[in-house]
């Protein structure tokens, strides 16, 4: 009789997550990939296996314009958010007492209690032509500036979504590094400022990259900010998906966009994690 390694207890506990992933992630994903080969005839989707949708989308300039814009905005957000978050995370990790750090992390999580949509709409009041920022700038004789329906607006929206999360993740990464190593650097003649890039960033590298990766994934796939704060023109990929489904029920072409987005994010995630966990070559 064949020897089995079946452990009823462990398998029972693992089943829910496996079922969940198959039903709500793997299944829909496979269906979406299949759908990208379907055809639409008379506003109705027909099962098929044709490359037409892929040809149609990948040869269109507007698709690639949208792709490059989305990629660029997500990259820019990732860079700006990581840089803006770092001083705050650094201070929380190294300069404050543990109790202050706990409270700060608590306040950073509070934004997630409210709807993202509500937070985005609140920016209307702040960024509008007659909004708070322009009213303040008018006092010193500047403006008014158009900030809504611009790429700047989109960026602000993305950061509303990502900045608190990036600060939290960076703070954990920095707080966990071995203080002895930082002191050892000082002891070897490294000034505190220089130690940041000579020792602290390399030590916290994995966590910092994971924080940036989350920022990129959230921004790349976000629909709300480019739509409401960026004015949806030119469209980012998530907006393109909505537009495509609305115009002539082109779900299969929208599926093509979605699959391309998935592939992009998977590639980025793999590259980022490879970089994050790269060990130095050893002979």
């Amino acid at each position: 009789m064949a020897r089995t390694n079946f452990s009823g207890f462990a398998t029972t506990w693992r089943m829910p997550i496996i079922v969940w992933q198959v039903l709500f992630f793997l299944g829909p994903l496979l269906f979406m990939i299949a759908m990208s080969f379907f055809l639409v005839k008379n506003y109705r989707m027909v099962e098929a296996f044709e490359l037409k949708n892929w040809e149609k989308m990948l040869t269109r300039g507007y698709f690639w314009d949208s792709y490059i814009l989305t990629f660029w905005l997500a990259s820019l957000t990732t860079a700006v958010t990581s840089l803006l978050a770092f001083p705050a995370s650094f201070a929380l990790a190294f300069k404050v007492s543990p109790s202050v750090r706990r409270w700060a992390l608590f306040f950073l999580i509070i934004p997630f209690f409210t709807s993202y949509l509500v937070r985005i709409f609140s920016w209307y009041v702040i960024l509008a032509e007659s909004g708070v920022v322009n009213a303040l700038l008018a006092h010193i004789g500047l403006g008014p500036y158009t900030m809504l329906n611009t790429k700047f607006g989109t960026l602000v929206g993305y950061m509303t979504l990502t900045l608190p999360l990036v600060v939290v993740l960076q703070t954990f990464a920095l707080a966990n590094i071995d203080r002895n190593l930082v002191q050892a650097a000082h002891n070897l003649g490294c000034s505190p400022a220089r130690a940041i890039y000579a020792v602290i960033v390399p030590l916290a590298k994995t966590g910092l990259i994971v924080a940036a990766l989350f920022c990129f994934i959230l921004s790349f796939g976000d629909f709300v900010s480019p739509y409401y704060l960026g004015g949806s023109k030119p469209p980012t990929l998530p907006i393109l998906i909505i537009d495509t489904t609305k115009s002539g029920q082109q779900w299969p072409r929208a599926a093509v966009v979605a699959v391309v987005m998935m592939l992009t994010l998977i590639s980025i995630a793999f590259a980022a994690l490879a970089l994050a966990y790269r060990k130095r070559a050893s002979r």
Partner: peptide
Amino acid sequence: SLALFPFLN
């Protein structure tokens, strides 16, 4: 703890 930098050879 020796405190050697793990990211350097």
